[in-house]
Design a protein around this nucleic acid. Structure first.
Length: 567
RNA sequence: GAGCGUGUGGCCUAGUCAGGAUAUGGCGGCAGCCUCCUAAGCUGCAAGCCGAGGGUUCAAAUCCCUUCACGCUCGCCA
């Protein structure tokens, strides 16, 4: 709705400028606390118009023509600014649209096919609290892009041939695997032991190298060993992801690109560019023309491929299946993803868009699966659900055990997802138990609570026979300040979705969710619904509560957070 | 040594790419609000001049330069 409003503002201002013989590439539109939207165009055109910004702003405001039924209500010059306020039609239309479009409201303005890769953690142990930042950013991005209208497929790229997997496979043949444990955790146990062993006796490293050569040559027994290790870890990882409402559409394996011959082909293609050379027996690509001083190794001295080489083949494959490729990667991949993009460019192939997020570390330092220094996602989720249960039990002691457990789960996951997604990906964070388990105000549960409140009003109204969702209502009766604020906030959902999708910034949606809940709680506090003075006003307000319920639910869904009707 | 990222009240954080009207919100602190739709809510108060220093501009948290601090990274790991 806001996008349409903005479009009208652009058109009306451009027309006004044209009739004055002026032209601006940038109208300097910005959100403002003084109006629904403001334009700084008078600053830009002051010299061109040979007028002071203040006078020019006034002249533009006077020149603007508003057609009937415009979403723009009034245009006023305040000093050098041009303030534009929405019309009553804008408010009324918003209510109407939400009621008719419901779960589709504000979306569907983009199209095209996107392959989105996220998480892709090595299957050498469970996901830890750093990995899930990737999962949550990635999954939220998927939901944002889908809602915006894209056809999105999410992929978890499974590393089933790297050195670390060779170590896991080797470890499984030497140490006992604890079948009683969740498989990814049991894998980590043997992996950590193997690393201790390898550090103590470097001679054993040769055994790992041998396994890697065998698997690349296609030795069946070795492949089977790797597969076993990988599928155990992935099964556990999937379970954790599912717990957080994260699901991938497919799990392409690295080895598939070796077996299909794609990796060999891409190595030949690289050679054909004339930009490769042999350096100490390894095949390297010269990326100097692309801003990388150092060359990139794409084939080891022993002829085996590297992660990067397989990744090239993977991206080539992806590019044939989608219009856009998006990779969500940790900060440690900054350099390598740059080199990957440069190499793809060199080969004349499409490059992925890369979303980088900074690290999550522990107070005592960075996490490491290999050294067993990490807090697993499962551990965090267990603790948070336990804490959430305490909170529900405190507030709703009369409810059933099933209700409390259910709410604790939904609220716990909501708290974790929101906590992670609300922070800009480019900020590094330090995991802190106290903070993680603190159900701070205005977090995920705050937004869920707003939704539950809306549901509660509607439920009560229905029980009293006051609520008929199908009955026509008069939105023009919604004139209270907090009512109009709430409606305008809901109207801007599309604009936030658009920004979030275009800039690949999932945190924009999180901030919006908080603001929307704020607006609803303000309304809730100051405007009585069930005890409204007149029947018609009550009907309109109930419809507004229903709208809030819908938009809050849509927003929560976009964040991958459950929307409980009661909590 | 080099590259990338970050630095906003006691703590966390929005805004920085596209410079403009009194810098967003939370936590913590202080003072209040449940005979009324769930107080996981709401109201008010104290607290920041945006790491430091220069520069560009009518206008800088935002752009440029210098500098400091922290995180990540720097060829046969992924």
């Amino acid at each position: 709705m806001f996008l349409e409003f903005k479009k009208q503002v652009t058109s009306v201002l451009t027309d006004a400028l044209a009739s004055m013989g002026l032209q601006a590439d940038d109208l300097g539109l910005e959100s403002s606390q003084h109006a629904d939207i403001a334009s700084k165009v008078a600053f830009r055109l002051a010299s061109q118009a040979k007028q002071s910004p203040k006078d020019l702003a006034q002249r533009i405001a006077d020149t603007v023509f508003l057609p009937d039924g415009s979403l723009i209500g009034k245009v006023t010059a305040v000093g050098p600014y041009i303030n534009i306020d929405a019309s009553r039609d804008y408010v009324d239309d918003t209510v109407f649209r939400i009621r008719t479009e419901t779960s589709e409201f504000g979306g569907g303005f983009c199209n095209g096919r996107i392959l989105l890769e996220h998480t892709s953690a090595n299957p050498n142990g469970p996901l830890h609290v750093g990995h899930i930042r990737n999962s949550i950013i990635g999954d939220t991005l998927k939901r944002v892009l889908r809602r915006a209208g894209y056809d999105v497929e999410t992929q978890y790229y499974v590393n089933d041939m790297g050195r670390q997997i060779a170590i896991v496979s080797w470890a499984l043949s030497r140490f006992e695997f604890d079948r009683a444990k969740k498989p990814d955790h049991a894998i980590a146990d043997v992996y950590i032991k193997a690393n201790v062993d390898l550090n103590a006796d470097p001679a054993k490293v040769a055994e790992i190298d041998r396994l890697m050569q065998l698997v690349e040559k296609g030795d069946e027994r070795t492949i089977k060993g790797f597969d076993e290790a990988v599928s155990l870890a992935i099964a556990g990882i999937k379970e954790t992801l599912l717990r957080m409402n994260v699901q991938h559409d497919s799990f392409p394996h690295e080895s598939g690109f070796i077996r299909s011959g794609a990796v060999s082909r891409i190595i030949e293609e690289a050679k054909a560019t004339g930009k490769t050379e042999i350096d100490n027996g390894a095949l390297v690509v010269d990326l100097a023309d692309h801003g990388f001083e150092k060359t990139l190794v794409i084939q080891r001295t022993d002829g085996t491929s590297l992660y990067t080489t397989r990744d090239l083949a993977y991206h080539e494959w992806k590019s044939e299946r989608a219009d856009r490729m998006i990779d969500v990667l940790g900060a440690d991949h900054k350099l390598i993803s740059g080199q990957l993009k440069a190499t793809l460019r060199l080969l004349g192939k499409p490059e992925p868009e890369v979303v980088i997020f900074e690290f999550v570390s522990l107070p005592e330092g960075s996490m490491s699966t290999r050294r067993g220094k990490f807090i697993s996602a499962d551990e965090l989720l267990d603790q948070i659900e336990k804490q959430a249960y305490v909170e529900v039990d405190k507030r709703r002691p009369e409810m059933s055990e099933e209700f409390k457990k259910d709410v604790a789960r939904t609220v716990g996951i909501g708290a974790v997802r929101y906590d992670i997604v609300k922070v800009s990906p480019e900020k590094s964070t330090v995991f802190d138990w106290k903070e993680a388990l603190d159900f701070e105000k205005q977090g995920g549960p705050y937004i869920q609570y707003s939704h539950a409140r809306a549901c509660s009003i509607l439920k009560k109204a229905a029980e009293d026979g006051l609520w008929d969702p199908a009955a026509p209502i008069d939105p023009s009766l919604l004139v209270e300040l907090t009512e109009v604020d709430l409606i305008k906030k809901m109207a801007s959902f599309d604009s936030v979705l658009e920004t979030s999708a275009r800039e690949l910034k999932p945190n924009a949606m999180a901030i919006y969710a908080r603001e929307l809940a704020d607006s609803f709680n303000q309304f809730y506090r100051f405007v009585p619904v069930l005890t409204a003075e007149e029947d018609e006003i009550r009907a309109s307000r109930l419809a507004l509560v229903d709208c809030a319920r819908i938009v809050l639910a849509n927003t929560l869904e976009t964040l991958g957070i459950g929307a409980p009707e009661s909590m």
